[in-house]
Amino acid sequence: MATPRIREHYVESLFILLLAVIFAAAVFTARGWPWKTALFPMLIGVAGCIIAAALALWTGVKGGEAPTPGDTGGAADIFLDVNLRSGEALVRTAVIALWILGIIAGTWLLGQMIALPLFVFLYLKLGSGESWPISVGLTVCIIAFLYGVFDQVIHASWYEGELWRALGIEMF
């Protein structure tokens, strides 16, 4: 668990600087607006810019207040206890991130009534190598949940799916 975070400390300082730049840009954008519209953006932007610049400076002088290993990084935040330095962990992070992006891409193409169950099934069968009964069973549960709760009770409006739209098929 004792992982030094030397390089990440610089990234973090850059992140603070980026925040300062965002605040400055926000103030700059607000300069032409009627004053009532600009009041709150200016107030928050100027305050944020000052604090961010001060913190960036402070971090530079002090060598950063990057959390020591094992630090929760705040009483009210959850401790991240994954050692990402090892290559394996990085690969796993990338894989789950791809699955998450895949849900969006799949829904854009097929609509979520197809994409979400498809994701569940593929994740279970291909991603985790679960058995057939479990993969199919859970997928059926998800379909029932989506259809029963979100379609029949809540009447959510579904994304149609660009593929069906292009083909002129009315799916949902």
Binding site: L138, V140, C141, I143, G148
Partner: peptide, 21 residues
């Protein structure tokens, strides 16, 4: 417990399908 969860889900599915007009 997994089986238990699955069988509960199956019952729910049936109920929902039957309830749909």
């Amino acid at each position: 417990s997994t089986l238990h969860v699955l069988s509960t889900c199956a019952v729910l599915v049936l109920a929902l399908l039957l309830a749909t007009p």
